[in-house]
């Protein structure tokens, strides 16, 4: 089974209490299903799900985007740079 790397930031990192983790992926996994998996693993993410965006290999990705082994997924709460 292939794995994907998850990287958490800001409030999401505080909730899951880790910076990174690896999860198993299957052929049909999309950005939307990855997020569902993460919420199942870390129910604390649930209240912020609607405001979270996921990046795949450093690009913001649509929910339907296919995820494959070796991808790096960023879990990105609303940003506040500047």
């Amino acid at each position: 089974m292939a794995k994907i790397k998850i990287v958490y930031f800001a409030g999401a990192r505080d909730v899951v209490e880790r910076q990174t983790e690896f999860i198993e992926t299957d052929a049909k996994m999309t950005v939307a299903t990855v997020l569902q998996r993460l919420v199942k693993l870390h129910p604390g993410l649930k209240p912020m799900t609607r405001s979270l965006r996921l990046s795949v290999n450093h690009e913001v990705a649509e929910p339907g985007h296919r995820v494959k082994g070796g991808d790096e997924i960023g879990v990105l709460p609303p940003v506040a740079g500047g």
Binding site: F9, A10, G11, S55, G74, L76, P77, V79, A80, G81, G82
Partner: peptide, 14 residues
């Protein structure tokens, strides 16, 4: 550029 930085760059402020 500054408006795009605020909405398009993954940086968070605590």
């Amino acid at each position: 550029a500054i408006d795009r930085i605020k909405t398009g760059v993954p940086i968070w402020k605590r």
